[in-house]
């Protein structure tokens, strides 16, 4: 199984899964905190429409985890909206 890192912790995934699918497969359904209500969010629409699943990937903020294929060695940082 390949691995990428989520907030510094390694996470295994099957090649071909999106970042969101890998997170969900590992039992995580929430990884973002909303700006106003500080509420947890994760994958909702799963097809790139809702933007609930935003993460930072290799330093690039605002990436939809449900669209981006996981790659070995990728650095995923979960996003507090106030962190930018």
């Amino acid at each position: 199984m390949s691995r990428f890192s989520v907030d510094g912790e390694p996470l295994g995934f099957t090649e071909g899964q999106t970042v969101a699918a890998a997170l969900v497969a590992a039992g995580r359904v929430a990884w973002r905190t909303t700006r106003v209500g500080r509420r947890p969010r994760g994958v909702f629409c799963g097809i790139g429409v809702c933007f609930d699943c935003l993460v930072t990937i290799d330093g690039a903020v605002g990436q939809r985890a449900c669209l981006i294929p996981a790659r070995a060695g990728m650095t995923v940082t979960t996003q507090e909206d106030d962190d930018g």
Binding site: T14, G16, Q17, T18, A20, A21, A22, V24, A25, V29, A30, P40, R41, G42, V43, F44, C45, G46, I47, C50, C66
Partner: peptide
């Protein structure tokens, strides 16, 4: 979290 669209459930299943 954990509430998804039905399409979202399907996409995770079919795509991943």
């Amino acid at each position: 979290p954990g509430v998804l669209t039905v399409g979202g459930l399907q996409a995770l299943l079919k795509g991943g």
